[in-house]
Design a protein around this nucleic acid. Sequence first.
DNA 1: CTGAAAGCGCTAACAT
DNA 2: ATGTTAGCGCTTTCAG
Lengths: 332, 332
Amino acid sequence: MPVTIYDVAREANVSMATVSRVVNGNHNVKPATRKKVLRVIEELGYRPNAVARGLASKKTTTVGVVIPDIANSFYAELARGIEDIATMYRYNILLSNSDGNEDKERQLLETMLGKQVDGIVFMSERVSEGLRADMERASAPIVLAGSVEESAAVASVNIDYRQAAYEAVSRLTANGHKKIAFVSGPFTSNINQDYKLKGYTEALAEAGIPFDENLVVETDNFYEEGMEAYEQTKQEKPTAFFAGSDELAIGLIHAVQEDGFTVPEQVEVISYENSKLAQMVRPRLTSVAFPLYDIGAVAMRLLTKLMNAEEVEETQVILPHRIEERSSTRNA
Amino acid sequence: MPVTIYDVAREANVSMATVSRVVNGNHNVKPATRKKVLRVIEELGYRPNAVARGLASKKTTTVGVVIPDIANSFYAELARGIEDIATMYRYNILLSNSDGNEDKERQLLETMLGKQVDGIVFMSERVSEGLRADMERASAPIVLAGSVEESAAVASVNIDYRQAAYEAVSRLTANGHKKIAFVSGPFTSNINQDYKLKGYTEALAEAGIPFDENLVVETDNFYEEGMEAYEQTKQEKPTAFFAGSDELAIGLIHAVQEDGFTVPEQVEVISYENSKLAQMVRPRLTSVAFPLYDIGAVAMRLLTKLMNAEEVEETQVILPHRIEERSSTRNA
DNA sequence: CTGAAAGCGCTAACAT
DNA sequence: ATGTTAGCGCTTTCAG
């Protein structure tokens, strides 16, 4: 029922090859016939069938994006960075949530490859052995965004998580704190369990502070858990907190305040995210500024190069981070 | 290079039709040959090409989703509802941001139709005449989610915005307030300009309170604007605020507090969204509970019916809402 | 500058 | 239960 390239060819008295040429901007077409074809396309309301085109050309101009949870503002920001650059390069996005579940991740990869995406941006809190193997033998280029896979077998864009954590905690030790708690996101994420935790312990060690396991608490990054974490660590009398996310930091601050202490005068809190939330609470959050949007954008840009088979000097890119000073910490 | 259905057929000594049958779960295949084919598929690592399948069957099992901004938690929540149901029905999602720009919206619609999506879930703050016309002649079913289009020409899922606003403001008039400000999201959204504003004026009228245009301020839903809105309306000495979003409500509350008043004792604030944010501030926000996830889920479910050409009794669905009582208002 | 023709990989009658 | 045969709508040589 819909009008095809064939209908246009007939109406314009040319071959379908010629129609294809004008549709694809091929210059080998006489201006007069181009004009004629364009007019017929307009008249008939012809719209190229991208599926047929994809089958013939083996290019779909769509890239897959697998993300743990699009409703999580953290990942949503990343996704926006990906999408903007994808749009810029004329790609569309096939988006799926994995909920961080390995089976789903592998199955999603399979599905997207089946749909013949030209490339994939993948976000995962922990790339399993199996998933990494699948990625390596994938028929389309893949880049990890905000996700680290030890072997560096697949391209990725991140910040130096360990270093960022180290700096944040050093910011606290510099102010003389001896009891610094680390209220972390889930250790199912290797970034939390391996990198951020390491940065934390390194900063403590450097300041000659013994590691106290009662001062590190694992959470799912929820506000309420931040409040609970305060209760859990309270007996150790921590005077400073390194929070794994803004939500956690806010929960912590509220619990501290409800317990009768002031932030940052009596207790300092530094966060790790710097979302809009950081400026929507009192005191405003000092936080490691995590360039989510940029990570997504750079990952997508890298992917376009890979899809064009361009030479890429470095596939493991590390973006800079910084610490945004606000009011949940005292001036150093 | 990749293995095709043809390779499998050859290796298994059957016709491609048979392979197609086992791949598609057709029961007309002798168990023995099914098993043989399955084994070959496994051996060769055959993965059906969804593009070819789509061309032949005229079904892509993918639905388009156009959304103003996925980085906006409001829409991200909606998107998650859509995605979950889509996954449940084995559809994948082609996602694009429109930034509420009409040209982009129309062009995105065109692109998705070109990619032969089986259906579309559309979110828009204001469906223009042109867009509505495009939708009506679209070759795939479309449902609007959290977006209202006056003529009801296209299927949609919403709540009763006017009624919700009416209830929220009545909640305030009931407490005796005479000066109630409405700090709204952008009037580029017809939901704000037409429905919520109407609910607000109706509630005032019913309480015999004259409408004062100095008490309604339009914003872009940002926190800072909530604070500014307080400054702008301050001279009128409002004692209660109806905020268009949680961010706005929080900005308002902070401004009120900084001005030396207490919430809810001296000033009451009621919000309209009920995101996670509502529980992450002190006082916690009383808010109209906007069932974002459900709207997305129901919209997608409705779309599956439309795609299956099932009879649908009502294409304009209105979901229930409620008011979540917390601490930014006094008990009635 | 333009046309003819061969696929792309699969589904879907239609046979047998 | 299985095979044969047309396409699906477009890109892409290859001729001319």
